[in-house]
């Protein structure tokens, strides 16, 4: 950026004097520099956020620029500060998602295993024929017709059988609770 220093500094000095066209030209000229600076050090999505944060910081902190000093050094110190701040926040954030994802999976696994075990335990208490019907229709997902064909009974017998089995199961659950 060093060969750009005189031009950027002139724009900055004009901007501090209230020249909004110069200010716009300055910010527009800085954006690609900043994008490259952050892009080399972070991912592209983070880089664009950092470009915007840095532009906002340049705006809100512009009174801290002393025209007697190099503009590039001032700009670099701000960009570097924003980068360090970003890494500090990332360090906090990076540990969270991993932990969260794992704990979410662990929870859902344990729950479904427990649920399956409960269903098996309840089914085991049904008479064998009814147990087969419930398993086919409610767990394996066969249609009434398919279950009827497989068991060699009528469709209405399947419906009645499943209905009674579920009623018995819910009675058992009620008793359990």
């Amino acid at each position: 950026m060093s060969e750009a220093e005189p031009r950027l500094k002139a724009l900055m000095v004009a901007a501090l004097g209230g020249d909004q066209a110069a200010y716009r030209a300055l910010l527009a000229a800085l954006a690609p520099h900043l994008r490259a600076y952050f892009g080399r050090r972070t991912g592209p999505a983070d880089a664009e956020d950092l470009v915007q944060e840095t532009l906002i910081a340049i705006h809100t902190k512009r009174a801290t620029y002393d025209p007697a000093l190099p503009f590039t050094a001032w700009l670099h110190a701000i960009a570097r500060y924003k980068l360090i701040d970003h890494f500090r926040r990332m360090k906090l954030r990076r540990t969270l998602p991993i932990e969260e994802a794992e704990s979410v999976l662990a929870d859902s696994d344990a729950e479904s295993v427990a649920a399956r075990r409960d269903v098996e335990r309840l089914l085991a208490m049904l008479p064998e024929k009814k147990r087969a019907l419930v398993r086919q229709v409610k767990i394996e997902g066969l249609s009434i017709a398919e279950a009827a064909a497989r068991s060699g009974i009528s469709e209405s017998a399947v419906k009645v059988g499943v209905h009674r089995a579920l009623k018995a199961l819910s009675a058992m659950i009620g008793r359990d609770a």
């Binding site: 209230g18 909004q20 716009r24 470009v51």
Partner: peptide
């Protein structure tokens, strides 16, 4: 970012040298 630059430039009022 372009919209941000427009917005900031529009608020680029003069800053006196001794403000800091």
């Amino acid at each position: 970012t372009d919209a941000l630059i427009d917005d900031l430039a529009g608020r680029g009022t003069a800053v006196s040298a001794g403000r800091a």
